[in-house]
Write a protein that binds this DNA or RNA. Sequence first.
RNA 1: AGUCCUGUAGCUCAGUUGGUUAGAGCACUACACUGAUAAUGUAGGGGUCCGCAGUUCAAAUCUGCGCAGGACUACCA
Length: 1146
Amino acid sequence: MSTKFPEYKNFNLSQINKDILKDWEENKTFEKSLETREGHPSFVFYEGPPSANGMPGIHHVMARALKDIVCRYKTLKGFQVNRKAGWDTHGLPVELGVEKELGITKEDIGTKISVDEYNEACRTNVMKYTREWEDLTSKMGYWVNMEDPYITYDNRYIETLWWLLKQMFEKDLLYKGYTIQPFSPAAGTGLSTHELNQPGCYRDVKDTTAVGMFKVARDEKSEFLYEGIDCDAYFIAWTTTPWTLPSNTALAVGPKVDYVRVRTFNPYTGIPCVVILAKDLFYNFFDKKYEGLELGEYKPGDKRLTFKTLSEHKGTDLEGIRYEQLMPLVKPEGDAFRVILGDFVTTEDGTGIVHIAPTFGADDDRVAKAADISPLILRDKEGKMQPMVDRTGKFFLIEDLDPEFVKNYVNVEAYGEYAGRFVKNAYDPNLTEKDPTLDVDIAVALKKDSLAFKVEKHVHNYPHCWRTDKPVLYYPLDSWFIKTTNVRDRMIELNKTINWKPQSTGEGRFGKWLENLQDWNLSRSRYWGTPLPIWVSEDRTEMKCIGSVAELKAEIEKSIEAGFMTENILADYVEGDNSKANYEKFDLHRPYVDGVFLVSDSGKKLVRELDLIDVWFDSGAMPYAQQHYPFENKEEFDKLFPAQFIAEGVDQTRGWFFTLHAIATMCFDGVAFENIISNGLVLDAKGNKMSKRLGNAVDPFETIEKYGSDPLRWYMITNAQPWDNLKFDLGGVEEVRRKFFGTLYNTYSFFQLYANIDGFNYSDADIKMEERPEIDRWILSLLNSLIKEVEECYEAYEPTRAGRAIQNFVNENLSNWYVRLCRKRYWGGEYDADKISAYQTLYKCLETISILASPIAPFYMDQLFKDLNSVTGRFTEESVHLVDFPKYNEEEIDKALEERMDMAQKISSMSLGLRRKVKIRVRQPLQKIMIPILDESMVPQLEAVKNIILSEINVKEMEFITDTSGVLVKKIKPNFKTLGPKHGKIMKQIAAAIGQMTQEDIVAFEKAGNYAITVNDENVDLTLEDVEIISEDIPGWLVANEGKLTVAMDVNITDELRQEGIAREFINRIQNLRKDSDFDVTDKIKLEIMMHDSINDAVLAHKEYIGSQTLAVSVELVEKLAESEAKAVEIEQGVESFIKIEKVSE
RNA sequence: AGUCCUGUAGCUCAGUUGGUUAGAGCACUACACUGAUAAUGUAGGGGUCCGCAGUUCAAAUCUGCGCAGGACUACCA
């Protein structure tokens, strides 16, 4: 054990970072933090897997610091906190990265490059930055087990996913359907919302829009719309994509929207007609100017369209009314052309009646399905159902359709006009933007047939494919779904049991999302990902879902017997052997699984569905898959699930948080996590998003290298609540380094300096609390309050508050008050009980801080802990991260003491302020201050801290004035908190009445204890509780006040005081000189002072005092000093002397 | 478009159950202190608490409507 506390020449947190890291590695501290907690209750934490195909950024430090803080804290509290790292390895970003690197597109996969080669490239590429990730993890001090991470492409991981999928399959939660999804005909692929949200995808474009006229079918139901008219009635509906009009099969009206029936004329052909539209949008189509005109004043070709409102109807009145197909090119197979209700219909634009083409709009599809309306479907040569537009973006050619279908459903002549036309010119290699579009041609045709009410160009925001720059279509695509809507209510219910930080993300963002939950689209038409383990017969009547490798192996055997396969790719796999080697004998990825054909129970050949599953399923399944459950860890699973804590960015709300929750609900009917922190974004100092492109991204490696990770972590955690966005500013990191770590380091250096001189090693018994001086008991009281507060904050998952409390304690209380006031106790003098108490108290504070702050600043706090413990050996643990969290001692918390020290601080501060006002420096002693006493309890409180105040402000006496003489000028203020509830409305008058009280009134009030006033003929009885009386002034004195406290200062300087002041000036100069001469703190000196009339008396009178303060063995006043060996000093304005100091050897 | 978050000093942030002089740090200015010294303290200037309306004796705080910034989701005639 060392005898000296280590001394540092400089303070380099970056170096400490490296030293401690090395120490942790050598001593296996992380492993020990788990081993020493073996057999303790476990705290379950899940690590959300990052993808290692990109470099880690500064925002990762944020999320990981949060995780680390909680895990380290829980370890201190005695829990065993296993944390397994993981890698997210599948998915589109990986594939796109590889495509870019290899310079290929999706279409090249399987042609220019084999699927096998492609996936191999992905497998390599995805781990490209593994080393950088591991490096950052280590340097930032994030403790997580990187030795044995879970990797989502591992066959064992995939096996668990298959098992989960099979659970869902058997619960009937998997189905295949189609949805309307963004589709890029130019790229021939569907687009994920992620791709659609790339910057610049939504652009303003100018398209031809049309208002179509849908003729109301006249029957019993619609008769009221034909009442009193002599022409046809039409619903009018607007569309920005006229090419979808041939696929119209319904019209939607708003249930609460009011509609009007208007007699007018077709603006293009002048034919009389009646149109129906939303009342609110009436004037968008009819000009107010012509309101008064008679209908008959209109002549065909006129610009001024006359009109007359006939009747009003509710949206609900229109529901169910039938209309004639607008463009009868193809007949639908089922029920269609009916008015339905749509909750999304507004009267913001259009006509308040919405054209529904279920094959080309997501909303359209949804409402049509709900109302049993058929989409307009064609049948192609293979007999497959298709929308009117093929995958290249053109209307199907007649020769590509099933001839039987064409015969029965297609109006060949009418359809032929449009067959083969591209719906956007951009898709047609032969066309430019200048050529007439299909939209225009359709609009023209409608005009000609008197079926268009308005045709115009319109600018709207439309999505474009980020790869081809061409417009996107909404298009029906086949997909596998998980029926999450079946468990929606259960998910909402379970979500209420989760502790979200912040609460609003759980209730609001996540909760609302659950309420509007749609089925989870599981399919991805890609190559690198977990294959869907479903095999289907060609006629789609039979299918099998495979839930394990063993099951697949057995099924392949059957298939070989049936003659569909010749070889079992799983032949070498040994069931029950969970070793890595056994699972590396095969590959569950494409293309290998695609080559597997199975046999159905009735003997049909089964082919695998080519889809991969959504990568979010991979990560959402990590609670089970990281354990290879249920193939391994089946028995102890209740110890591994659910997580007590997870943390990720708020952007994961609909990602990881959702998939974790969904899978846990469906497969285990429980929550996957109990407490969760979702942190906000890390922005640059100006509040902009960081991006490599803009060059404003902060490099975490550089930052840690420069400052060390402690200030970085401390800054990130304490600057703002983690769920608020952080405007990251390196200046803030620097400030934290200086203000918090610098102060703490200074405090330690101070302690170390004197403790080493006195040989303090905490071997003495603890000085009893009651024997310690006031100021020690005070800082210990605060320390215990701090332990309590910090513990509560950590328990509540609020590290920000914990860090701020610690910082405040260190800066304000420990350094700025305790150490400052106690300096003299350490300096010189005997090694007595007071000094021991001082060392023990300061030591205790530093030691406790090192533990309390260790979760946030793991490096420096460990260094501090080790440095302290290296001499005292108070802990057997070698690292702060292995000890137990301190217990606070309620008995040591003394609120009265904290309060009176607070008064002492205020009085000192006011007194120093007064000195400044009259320009009397603190070194000059003054005779006394006076403090008016308003409340008898103040006297003992102030008595107790009297000496602290007097020495702090360099004043000899403190006098209390109880106002019997009436010298105090008092001020009275109403106490709104007590008066408000009692008197309510007349508060203002009461306040005014109190304000007008005279000095005599106040004195009388104080004596009697109550006071009656009359306000608005109402008698109000005031008690002393209802007011606050402070003394404001003492006439003739220099006075300051703050709150209830008032200080009056005697600023007369007697000769005696002046001499003492001069002595202190001397001491100051001598100390400076000692320091300039590089003397050691303990060196003894001989001192000679040159005489000067103004100082001689002072030096003589305080010779002893000067000597004791400057360690001078002799103090001599001399006539003359040679200039070469003496130093000139100015004691006060115009008074100069010379001093000579000389070191004396022992 | 919907949902959620944020808006307080030049900057970064506190601000308890509504209670009457709205705070801290940084930066700036001045002064002081200093054997903790590449520190430190004291004071000063600096505020439409985003706006408007409402509730209340009393609103930075509660309610409503807006505005601005951000995130996510969606994309619609």
